[in-house]
Each structure stands twice: as C-alpha cells, then as structure tokens.
Design a protein around this nucleic acid. Structure first.
Lengths: 325, 325
DNA sequence: TCTTGACATGTAACGCGTTTCAACATTTAG
DNA sequence: CTAAATGTTGAAACGCGTTACATGTCAAGA
C-alpha cells in the first residue's frame, strides 16, 4: 500500500502539495498536478479514509438509530441513504432491538467520532439522555419530540389522524377503534388528541376498551380482530378502526377476511403511511410523505454540520381511499 | 475534548500505559489502572474512534451493498446488522439504485479502508471487477456466484425451486408459469434448470411465453396477471405460477382477486422466501432461511478477517403450504 | 525601478492511539 | 544467594493526511 509520503518523495514535491492535488486546491500549477497524478496512478494510490477522517475531524458517516428495520421504515431508510450518499455521506445502521444499552452504543459512537450525526427513528432511551449527547453532534429525530436540542422531521400527527377520522365518520361509522403505536411517543398523543376532539365534535360512542397502544405489527392487528370477534354483541364491537401503520391494518384486514368479517361493511379499516402494502391489499391509508421526511432529516443535519443543505420542504398528509372504507 | 496524551500527563504515566488500560492489557498494575481510570472519568474521556481505526488498520465496519432495500431483504439486513453488532461490527448501507458507478463507491470505500469487508446482496457491476477488489478485503455475496474469490451464502436454488414445482405438479397443475428474477443471476439459472428438469420428468406442457425474467416487484406481479387474462382461451393461460419472491406473489394474488380469477382453482401461486407478507396474505411460499444466511455471511467474513466466527450452519429449504395452492 | 499582490510550494506541527523494543523491578526456582 | 522468569512502565516511531504559516517567484501597477 502506497501512501501520500511516497507519492511526495517520488514526485519530488512535498506532502502538502500532494495533499493539495488530492483536495483539488487551485494553488497547484498544472504541470505539478499532472506529474503527481501520474505517479498516483502508477502506484495505484488512494488516500486512506481513516487518516482523512482523523485529521479532518469528520467521518462523513451518519448513524441511523432504530429498534429494527420494518416495512414502514423502508422508504425512510432508502430515501435517507440515497440522499446522504448524494452529499458524500454514508449511513450506518444501529438497531437496538429495544435494548437501551445497545442503543446507547450508537450515541457513544458519535462521542467517539465514528459518526458525525445521528438520526433517531425510534428511541428507547430516556429522551433527556439522548439530548445530553447533542453536544457531541447534531441529532434529528423522526419522531416528534419536545426536547429543544433535538430537531424533528415528524409531521403533526393530529392533522393526519383527523383526516382519517373525518373520513370514516363521513362514511357513517361511529364506533371507532384506535390502534395506536408507541404509548409514550408524541405521535401517539397527537393522535389521541385528534380522536378526543373528533369524538367530542361528532358525539361518538365511547369505546375506551377499543383504544390500544403499543400496536405495531401484523400479528397484533390479527389479535385485535380476534378480540373484537370474541365480543358476541356486534353493537359492542367497533365498526371502524384506525391503525398505527399499514402493517397493523394489513393484519386486521387479512384476519377479518379469514374470519368472514366483512370489510368495510362491518369494519372499516384505515391504515397509515400508504406503503406499497396498503396499495397491494387495497387498504385505505393516510399518505405520510416518509421519503420526504427522510430528505428533510438529512438536510437538517447537513445544515447543522455546516454544509449547504437544501431548505426544508413543507409536507402534508392526504388520504388515499381504497376498498377498506 | 480530552485526549490520551492529557490523561498520560495528568496521571504521570506514559501514553503506552494509558493505552494498555484502554485495551485491557494485563500488563498494568492495579493501582496504576485505578488511577488512570479515575482520571479518565474525571475528564470525561473517550478514545477517538478514528485514531483507533487509523492505527489499528481496521474500522470494524462492514459495507452492505444492494440496489435498494426491499421487503425481501429485510430479514437479511436485520439479521446481518444484529449479528455484526454482537461482534462489535457496524453495518454501512450502500445502495446503488442500479447504477454501477454508485456501487463502485462501495468497493472503493473498502480500498480506502473505510470498511473492512463487504457483503454483496445485488451486484450491478461486472463480477470480475468485483472480484478484483477482493485483494482489498473479504467479500461475501448473498447471490450464488462462481467467482472463486467471492464466497457465497446463497443456497442452491435448484432444490428450493424443485420443491415448489413438485408441490404444484402434485396438485395436478400442468401449465406452469415462471416469474424469475434477475436474468443474469445464478439463482435464476438454477431455477430455470429446475424447471426444465421437472418439465421433462413430468412431461409438462410447453409454455415458453410464460417464463419471464426480471420480475421482482408487486407491480410486475400485477402486470403478469393482466397479461394472463388478456389471453382469451383459458387453456392457453398458465394454471400455476412460481414467483421470484413473495412480493411478486403478493402482486399476483391481489390482482387475481380483483380480476375474479380464482386462486388456487384457476391459478395456483407459490411465493419464495416465506416472508411475513406471505403469511399475511396466506400465500404458499418456499421458506428460505434468509436470516440464517445473513448470519453465515457475517461469520464467513469474520473468519476471513481473522476473527473467531462460528462455523457455517447447514441450511435448507422447506415449503410452507397456505391458501394459494 | 520598486512595490505589491497573486501564485506555487515547502516546513513542521497536528489529529490521536498503538505497538515494538528496551529498561528496570520483583519474584521464583534452583 | 544467584540466575532466570515474570511483571511494570516508558521512549519513540508509526499509521496517514491536513493545514497554518513561511518563503520564494514572478508579473502587474506605480
């Protein structure tokens, strides 16, 4: 492996000049540049990325922290990786599997200068703890959070959820079940607030037993249907359900079909995120511009890293109506 | 930011000794160790990851190269990230979007010592080119490939595909369509071989027009159904289809349902990979132990990196029968 | 012709751990 | 009690670019 010093020696110039060639500095004459480039070529030289990271004090790497990658995150992940790479940044995946200690490793990696910044998708540690790491580098969260040290690109869930609620209410449904996600998240509290307000506005039946939190998987959706059917009196069952994400909706819809529960006549189902899954299964879903949020997340970080990111795009929800409502 | 030298100065010991403490070397007396640790704590010191990478000549990072992350890759990705992190390795995602130049960046990053090794999921560059990078570090491919410099953890697709073929043939289907994936891949040629052999064995009708390559998405599955239905004579249509993956199967099944084509009576559908999607939609699928392949991929790399990885697990396919056959 | 500024290039320190080799101290075996 | 073995610690070089500052050169403006 050749290194910069050898290039310098062989070319007869100093390390500084060789470095200038590498960094496209204009303060190098054309003949010098040509000669140095020729020698680099000859020796099959490439600069050592670690040395660059060490001396520049930046790694051009961004950590993406999640509990685990699922279908809903896919557009976020792909869009983030893609956008970052356009600006020369690589993405490192940190999955915690829900273990705060493993998640902490990601934070520590920023402290140790292994990543320049962090994007948090799900956070299982105390938010204050997360916030305390912001002195080591910029952090952006996909979830909305009130911690002022951590910017968020999540959208106001209140609006999106209201969209779905008004839709099913407009269809005449009155017994609405809510399958919320992570109980502690602000996303969830925004959705809860939306439901409370809508319930008040439209004088909906009270069905506290059908508001659940912590529902995010296909299986949990299936379970929910089984629970509904366990209630004998159909009037005690919900006639519509809004889901934390399309996965849950998919579970509900397919279980309902298996159990001969008619959708949407007996149970309207609204998913969230409008993933390809929702399209495939014909599930009405609230489109959440996830890929654009990922772009925003990156540009936000880039801005804090001193780069010239593009300004944030204004994003908004809309409802995609399909066969389940 | 404090550094190792400051710790050395303050503690009265040399950098070497401090380094020994960091690396758990036993050649440090307990009092010395305690004193140094105390000072580290006091100064809130953590070693700089870049400096470590530079001097050790390894980054503890592995690049995962794909065209883009999709549902089928999810178990591979999650399992790989998880396994790698157990051994202290981080995973960096490189998505090429099918652009060989972007993919090349990943290879170059290994040359530049930014990653210690590479796992290739899809490769859009010439395999010989990929092989030429193996001098810079170990490469393992998820796809089976004959290049001897690149190990593969893919399973023999011939066996898996035969499993599916025998299943539908046993159900009385004779006009079998094949929706193959990437045309140039060895996976595909293995599957093709499996079909040819099965067709010969069972004297199946010849339906060359229903063998397609390059089919991997939900939409393409939907398209395929439309094409089938465009043929007026039902006997000219296939009565069974084996799919490159569950996404394609999902597209076929949902489009067939929309078009009133009865599954499995008029069209049996077999997916591949047995993802959660197949479970949800009740699609018969061939289980491909993807998560275990990812584990094998990591252990293979770790072995080549000089670590003590676990030995490869022997893996095998089996068919999960559901409602589409 | 002299000054000023733009440009080309070099010197040396810096970013920060790791590691080899040597030196010295302390046991332990003989 | 000595020689050999074991343990503790340090000096200095190494891994590899980057960059602030200094120096030298040459052309344009005064």
């Amino acid at each position: 492996m050749s290194n910069l010093e050898q290039i310098a020696k062989l070319s007869g110039f100093s390390k500084a000049t060789v470095s200038r060639v590498l960094n496209q500095s204009r303060h190098v004459s054309q003949p010098t540049r040509d000669k140095i480039l020729a020698i680099m070529e000859e020796l099959d030289y490439v600069p050592n990325g670690n040395a660059i990271s060490l001396s520049k004090g930046q790694t051009l790497q961004i950590g993406l922290v999640t509990e685990g990658i699922n279908e809903v995150m896919l557009p976020f992940l792909n869009s983030f990786v893609e956008t970052a790479s356009q600006y020369g940044y690589q993405t490192i995946i940190y999955t915690s599997s829900g273990d705060p200690k493993k998640e902490l490793q990601a934070f520590e990696d920023m402290r140790r200068k292994r990543v320049d910044a962090l994007v948090i998708s799900t956070c299982v540690n105390d938010l204050a703890l997360l916030g305390s790491y912001s002195k080591y580098g910029p952090i952006v969260s996909w979830q909305r959070m009130e911690n002022p040290q951590i910017a968020s690109v999540a959208m106001n869930q209140y609006d999106g959820y209201t969209l779905g609620l008004e839709h099913v209410i407009g269809r005449g449904h009155t017994r609405i079940a809510n399958a919320y996600g992570r109980p502690s998240s602000i996303n969830t509290s925004g959705r809860m607030k939306a439901y409370e307000d809508a319930a008040r506005r439209h004088r909906l039946a009270e069905l506290p037993q059908w508001s659940r939190t912590g529902i995010h998987s296909i299986r949990q959706g299936e379970e929910l249907v089984k629970e509904m059917l366990a209630v004998k009196d159909p009037l005690q069952r919900p006639d519509a359900v809004l889901c934390a994400n399309d996965l849950v909706a998919a579970g509900i819809v397919s279980e309902a079909r298996r159990q001969q529960l008619r959708v949407p006549e007996n149970l309207a189902v609204v998913g969230f995120d409008n993933t390809e899954l929702a399209h495939t299964l014909g599930i009405t879903s609230i489109y959440n511009p996830i890929a654009d949020q990922a772009k925003n997340a990156f540009h936000l970080l880039l801005g804090k890293l001193g780069g010239a990111g593009e300004p944030q795009q204004k994003l908004q929800y809309f409802l995609v109506e399909r066969a389940t409502t």
